[in-house]
Design a protein around this nucleic acid. Structure first.
Lengths: 263, 263
DNA sequence: CGCAACGTTGAAATTCCTCAATTCACGTGG
DNA sequence: CCACGTGAATTGAGGAATTTCAACGTTGCG
């Protein structure tokens, strides 16, 4: 097998359940892991905090929760209390339309902070669902706000997190509004690639954590179109796919879907 | 003419220029208009400030700038210094792709705060362009951050503004990702309708401030499709359109494009 | 071993886009 | 004040991209 060499810790355990019906995280005693010892610190928390400030932050975010594939981190309509920093694993967020249509608004991986969209209404406007066994740090928002009044660095960081989310959403809008299926999928793969690279994993070989249907929902395509486009990429030697294993063979070729397309 | 009865102050003056080539706001001495006297206070600023606090805020936001149709409020790539509260008028924000494709990410009207997406990168990631003669209050962001450390109400408000922007963007993603042309346009019209209503204008008769091309860019459609869909709505008695004048005749009929569509 | 969800592929149908011609609205200059 | 020019909008016909419907293969777990 050529595919998938690294990211071992991200692989779903063979025992992963199909999602637990109670939507409760599996009971596991809340672990205490310090932010200062966390390898993801740079991604989710601000740099430049003093030791004392770091400790304040750790006290706030001490609660960790574990999830199995299919578990809800939070649900559309439930009260907002906390943001969540993903320590490990993979989530999707989705909004549901009354008529049953769903839109996957994003896929989130370790080091990313999730739940910012709930601040405005005090209620979560979407679902967040684990796509593999995952762990999050809970960040009670009221306390985070209080602390950020004392720590300008933290305040600034929080603002940047929210703003970055807006920018990300805008680039998805660009994708959905003006790209063809091939371009959308290429952009999607390259985006995953960059994010894996930023976390020290191979940017060219990884396991997809989501189904074709979920990719399609995120990209505004039907699952058949996603599947066909994967196959087309493979025939053109751009990638190698087999089910959820992907290898990006021709990165420049994938990138070419943007600059050149409309010339 | 049945169309357009109110919103007089929003109408472009006959003398409106085609946009000024220097992209500078027309020189007009900065007017001092107090927030406390502003009719839009409820929309852009937090409620519950004491008189003294309100004054602090006013000192920060006293600069007003006037724009003519076509002027840039800010440009993609320019340094970020301030947020802008729209006092009067209408703007669009758009992101540009290298190859020339553009995506209108939103239309903003009086009372809305614009520029939040620039916080993350210290540079504006998009263009903001006036669609009619407009005026904004400049809110220097560094000062806003400082003040919001002292005024929890302001801090909370700022967080809600950003979060609301994320939620808005997500609903546009839902629109772009899973709706048909008719649904997109119905959603667009109903959204405008609500926002006019919130400002005391007629929710059923208004002037479009943007071209078919701009509507199309925002909704992920070509201008011809927008035009055709308008005509189809008119034939079905849902609306009455003539160029930029729109009257929504059958609101329930327009709303029906959602709940019923996929049943 | 067999079910059930996931994934692939083909053919037909649909939606939206492209290209093109024409009309309309509006600001400018004669 | 009207004619003209230009950009905006409408409409039609044909074509392309994506969806829909359907059949079949694959994978993983009970």
């Amino acid at each position: 097998m050529i595919y998938v060499k690294n990211r071992g810790i991200f692989r779903s355990s063979a025992a992963a359940l199909r999602g637990n019906p109670l939507q409760q995280p599996v009971s596991r005693p809340p672990t205490k892991i310090t932010c200062s010892a966390c390898t993801l610190r740079d991604l989710c928390m601000p740099l430049g905090l003093s030791k004392g400030e770091m400790i304040q932050l750790e006290q706030l975010s001490s609660v960790k929760r574990a999830f199995k594939r299919g578990d809800f981190l939070y649900r559309n309509g439930t009260p907002f209390t906390s943001l969540y920093a993903i320590r490990m694993g993979f989530f999707k967020t989705q909004v549901l339309h009354e008529d049953g249509r769903e839109q996957v608004t994003g896929f989130q991986m370790a080091g990313e902070v999730i739940g910012l969209d709930a601040i405005s209404g005090d209620v979560h406007p979407c679902d967040a669902i684990a796509l593999e066994d995952s762990e999050v740090c809970e960040l009670p928002f009221a306390q985070l706000e209080t602390l950020s009044r004392e720590l300008p660095v933290l305040q600034r960081h929080l603002h940047k997190l929210m703003s970055r989310e807006i920018v990300r959403d805008q680039s998805v809008m660009l994708l959905l509004g003006s790209m063809r299926a091939e371009e959308r999928l290429a952009a999607f793969l390259l985006n995953l690639s960059e994010r894996y690279a930023a976390r020290g994993y191979s940017p060219t070989a990884f396991q997809l954590r989501m189904t074709r249907q979920e990719i399609g929902s995120h990209l505004g395509l039907k699952l058949e179109t996603v599947s066909r486009t994967f196959s087309a990429f493979q025939e053109n030697g751009l990638i190698s796919v087999r089910s959820k294993s992907v290898e990006l063979i021709d990165l420049p070729g994938l990138r070419a879907f943007f600059a050149q397309q409309t010339l």
